[in-house]
Design a protein around this nucleic acid. Structure first.
Lengths: 219, 219
DNA sequence: CGGGCTCTTGAACTAGCTCAACCGGAGTGG
DNA sequence: CCACTCCGGTTGAGCTAGTTCAAGAGCCCG
């Protein structure tokens, strides 16, 4: 049984039209609402109405799904610049939480869909997410534990500013639920990569990558 | 090592604007090209340019990805009415094949994206696929073999005309590569569901569902 | 009928899980 | 400043679901 911690710090919402928000949107007539969330705060939950899409300004968001017995699958981590929360139905089938203190922009996407340029951005974003999900299907369906962790580290390295130093904002438990493993196995694979000389660890959350080794050992 | 059969029957292409095709599209000025493919014929392959999206007229299509050593993950089966082949990049990261003799409509989607109504349909389709992929992430990451097969049968039942009789167009191997299992495990799970009285088999490809039993045993 | 497929079944093996103990660093309070 | 505690992470030992390897059974189409 995989349960995530229940500690959720309060969310601060600003349901008014800040000038900054409008500026950050694409069309001046589409309201974009800035919101802040504390560590582990829920941004939205399964069953809520899914009127809004979100754009991350800062921080990290995890989007996930739960089975009735508590098993959890994280479908993705979203960082600054990423959109998330686009769902085809009226009600949400997924939940989203802030991994660390996070600022987002909420956009009522039904309104947004009236603008062709916005529509195009939404489509682009949906297609990017689709591709990410499908690559992740390959990971979950066909890769072993070590390959999964390597793929994860490369993905995180790709996103960070420094390709050699990765700062992991999420705990092992989240990594496990993203990679379809247990946190123990994730920990063991970190140890194995360290033994193989592919990474160095400075605490649990900072990873130094040896990209040469990494590139050498896989696709 | 999971290799699919290499038997691919020839594809017949009609690169002209048939009246039917235009009718089946949404705007008369967007060319839709009807194409036919034999069993196991490739519709597109990884590395090709990804200019076209497709709509299935009849038959079944599998979209998949391969690892260098031949491990395969099928991300979805597409049947009449479904769109597939929408990818964000210039070149394809996935491959598509006809599971059975199949007719599709090819649409140059960059053109299509000029029409707002078409854009909206593409977005809708992309969001639908996105949701399907993400549900499938939960299946691959967190469900056991029996749960996976049940989910699969429900999905197939949902799509077929008769909710009690499922005609499976694909072999066990494809089901395995869709569910992240081996074909032997798939076969064993079919046997187990039969023993549990949840299904009856008429040959390997026709499944009679006892929906009461099925509904009783899970979400 | 016969020759490939596809599918099923069996037996042994193993990657990853489960359960359990321990470790270590950051915050807290005496 | 040091002890305590809490939480996240690591490590170990045994177990099991699913894989692998292998042999057979249908079955479709010539």
């Amino acid at each position: 049984m995989l349960m995530h911690t229940e500690i959720t710090e309060k969310a601060t919402k600003f349901p008014f039209l800040a000038p900054k928000a409008v500026e950050a949107g694409h069309d001046a007539d589409i309201p974009a609402i800035p919101m802040s969330f504390g560590r582990n705060a829920e941004i939205y939950g399964e069953g809520e109405r899914s009127g809004y899409a979100y754009k991350v300004l800062s921080g990290v968001v995890r989007v996930y799904q739960l089975l009735p017995d508590g098993r959890r699958q994280i479908s993705g981590f979203h960082m600054a610049g990423d959109m998330f929360g686009l769902e085809p139905d009226e009600t949400r089938h997924f939940s989203a939480e802030a991994v660390v203190p996070t600022k987002v922009l909420a956009i009522k996407w039904q309104n947004a869909a009236r603008s062709a340029s916005y529509l195009r951005e939404l489509l682009q974003s949906a297609m990017k997410d689709l591709r990410h999900s499908q690559e992740h299907l390959l990971l979950l369906g066909r890769k072993n534990a070590l390959e999964r962790l390597i793929s994860f580290l490369r993905e995180m390295a790709e996103r960070g500013s420094d390709k050699h130093v990765i700062e992991l904002p999420m705990p092992r438990h989240d990594i496990a639920d993203y990679l379809g493993l247990t946190l123990e196995t994730v920990s063991r694979m970190f140890a194995e990569l360290k033994d193989l000389g592919v990474i160095k660890l400075q605490g649990a959350r900072r990873v130094l990558l040896d990209n040469h080794e990494l590139a050498a050992m896989c696709s």
